[in-house]
Design a protein around this nucleic acid. Structure first.
Lengths: 235, 235
DNA sequence: CTTTATTGTTTGTGATCACAAAAGCGTGAT
DNA sequence: ATCACGCTTTTGTGATCACAAACAATAAAG
């Protein structure tokens, strides 16, 4: 019997064309991203291997990869855990997102063609729809897709892996906060971003992206709420 | 007999307190960073295990970690190689460095105390000395240490892993270019940075960092030279 | 001479095992 | 109660093996 809280991981069917390591990686990545594993929780290779019903080997490789992406943390004792959060670190992650993503957006702008514009418009309207339905999970996923679609317009783009690393680190806490929020209040900044893109106005786009990120944080909860989750995540 | 060019990797004595995987990781990381492995070169687990005289297992883990840090690239065929470079990608990496590092510098500035200032001054003077001796390797290492010491003044810093990833991706090409340069012409921007730090002038510091990075690139070679190396790295 | 089939080899993936270090745990002393 | 010590169990690390997919090279056919 585990003394620690039992881990409940959402399992998906494994595609035969994908290696076991890749499947384990994606599964654990989602689990971390969606806060299914509490920060501070110690992960052992054998335990995860048992839960996922695979041998320890693919788990080892997936854990090392996630640690390299800063999604997990390897302590001096060689134990792996989901990193704990502090209010200051949370703030640093948000500011880093703004700095890097507004840069990536500006660098992508000149490459946005009609196809890409159409794709962004489509995502934008899907987000509007998800907001009416108040489907928080869907909003979160579509929002990521929107940002990704924007940045990857730049064919020589090199920052997306770095951005995804930041998303991974923020993920658990965004989720923990939003899941407790009944009333949420969200101004859609994507419309502003779309307008800036159509006008090819790099500065306005950067402002819209920055505002979107900031309000995504505010959407996640007030600083006090966040503080509560962060403090409680330790024990 | 290998059909591909033989790999010559600088080996260091392995500290007993360090795991084999960590030692392999650091060894391969240095080899990539210093351009000892040519971009495009396919790396196999067993070959590296033979060169480093370890079993394939630690090599597997080190390769996966380096790939997660974008130092290596895993192709669809599951083969691992040092990523090839293009002029556009090189430019994107430089611009990403400027955006992220100037951000990190500004965020670190309020935390710089006397001890840190002294450390930075010491590194600054060591760089001056290395420049007089025209010791390119030493300059490069000290320059990295200077940047690291600056950014890590912020105790809640989260961007250093991202910055190091960019350094790793640029490393081979900086090296390849500098090694061919006889005449080099370098204005020391660290003095400007030091001055900005002492005045607690965030904007000036960002400008100095940006200039330092840009001139580090220029120092690496003219765009034409770089182009030569990039094109030749394919075959 | 070029192209396609086929065979032999190399390589990554994944499973299993051995071992030393770390963690947990009960016992006893202060 | 609290801490220290010795014992048992758990855990990460690393080595070795089996296997299927990818690759390379040769042979056959156009």
């Amino acid at each position: 019997m585990d003394k620690k809280s039992p881990i409940k991981i959402t399992l998906t069917e494994r595609d035969e064309s994908v290696t076991i390591t890749q499947w384990v990686y994606q599964t654990l990545r989602s689990a971390v991203m969606y806060g299914e594993i509490l920060p501070g929780r110690v992960l052992t290779i054998r335990e995860l291997a048992g839960i996922l019903d695979v041998s320890p080997m693919p788990v080892r490789e997936a854990l090392r990869q996630l640690a390299a992406e800063n999604a997990l943390e390897i302590q001096g004792n060689r134990r792996v855990m989901v990193p704990k959060m502090t209010a200051m670190k949370f703030n640093e992650l948000c500011e880093a997102r703004i700095a890097i993503e507004s840069h990536a957006a500006a660098r992508a702008l000149p490459y946005i063609d009609n196809d890409r514009l159409e794709q962004l418009r489509s995502l934008d309207s899907m987000i509007d729809q998800a907001q009416e339905e108040e489907n928080l999970d869907q909003i979160s996923i579509l929002n990521q897709n929107f940002h990704r679609a924007l940045y990857t317009a730049n064919p020589h783009q090199v920052t997306l892996p770095l951005i995804e690393s930041l998303w991974l680190q923020l993920g658990p806490f965004m989720r923990m906060a939003t899941s407790e929020l009944e009333e949420h209040y969200l101004v859609d900044r994507h419309n502003e971003a779309m307008s800036a893109i159509e006008r090819k106005d790099a500065y306005a786009l950067q402002m819209a992206i920055a505002a979107d990120i900031r309000e995504g944080i505010a959407f996640a909860g007030t600083p006090e709420m966040l503080h509560t989750f962060i403090e409680n995540s330790g024990h």
